[in-house]
Design a protein around this nucleic acid. Structure first.
Lengths: 159, 159
DNA sequence: TATCGGCTGGGCAGTCTGTACAGCGATATG
DNA sequence: CATATCGCTGTACAGACTGCCCAGCCGATA
């Protein structure tokens, strides 16, 4: 569950150049191939590395607009709302947060005009009391994990 | 920029089983290997597929708590605040949204108590006027892209 | 001291990748 | 209508990598 320095270097290396194989990694990191292989297996069965799926850019698919919608849910309607939102492709993520029946919802759309259609579809469901939307303008820090990995590696190292 | 049905199937297949090679993909999809290879190259140079980096699970790293902080920024302090937040490993993502100098900030922490430390570090910076935080309780729809890919593939198909 | 887990270095067979080439059908162009 | 272009197919070859195995070494622990 805790990762050491070598684990950290493996993850960082993979993040930088996902196409490198185990052999090349072992060369770069200065350890035996079997070691890298074992570490990778462990990281994956630990769940630290969930997988290596392709990272798709919605903008390149024709969905350059991102928005966050805060939804207020009627008591007890949570499960239904979730099921509803799951069916909307433009809903990329859905989280329940502290607060009275609140959900946070990450949306994409083809344009600002199209966003209206998406929102209508999202909120066009009984059980959603109120929705407020914030359009994302810029993304100064795209979803990242490396700094946290390095932090975690440092932490365990000191132990 | 628009993807067709075959592109969609390639992406879905890759998402399901990232370890399959080009040859195996061509077998499953019933097309020539060169075709899959060419499509993949195109998808990557198009920017539709950004990469295949490892998907790291913060919870498995010891950061099971996720929260969103909405920050109100003093006029003109945006760049400084961004630079500041970039240095905080627990800040996984930062977006600017509509509204008067607002930023949305995705955080993780080792515990609810630790979240306090993270938030203190985040807001302990001149230029942040106000911050309100919502702790994520559940994640009914984890960040996903496949439904959107399938939608995009369908759209272009009809053309 | 004996045991265990992790790392090293080596080897082997099987498979995949990168690259290239010729043929072919559909579409666009003069 | 004739032609150029583009994408897909099927094949080929050399090089490299993966999965797997094993013996040995070393530090930590019981």
């Amino acid at each position: 569950m805790a990762i050491d320095h070598l684990d950290g270097r493996i993850i960082v290396l993979l993040a930088d150049e996902p196409r490198v194989g185990v052999l090349e990694m072992s060369r770069r990191l200065g350890v035996a191939r079997g070691t890298v292989q074992a570490r990778l297996d462990r990281l994956q069965s630990n769940g630290v590395i969930r997988g290596f799926g392709p990272q798709v850019e919605p903008a390149a698919l024709g969905y350059p607009v991102t928005a966050f919608a805060t939804l207020q849910i009627r008591q007890g309607q949570g499960p239904d709302v979730r099921a509803h939102l799951t069916t909307v492709p433009e809903v990329l993520e859905l989280l329940t947060t502290t607060g009275s029946g609140d959900m946070l919802c990450r949306l994409v759309a083809r344009s600002n005009a199209d966003l209206q259609r998406v929102i209508d579809r999202v909120v066009g469901f009984d059980g959603i009391v109120r929705a407020s939307t914030a359009i994302v303008m810029e993304n100064p820090v795209p979803l990242r994990i490396i700094p946290l990995v390095e932090q975690a590696a440092r932490d365990s190292e000191g132990t």
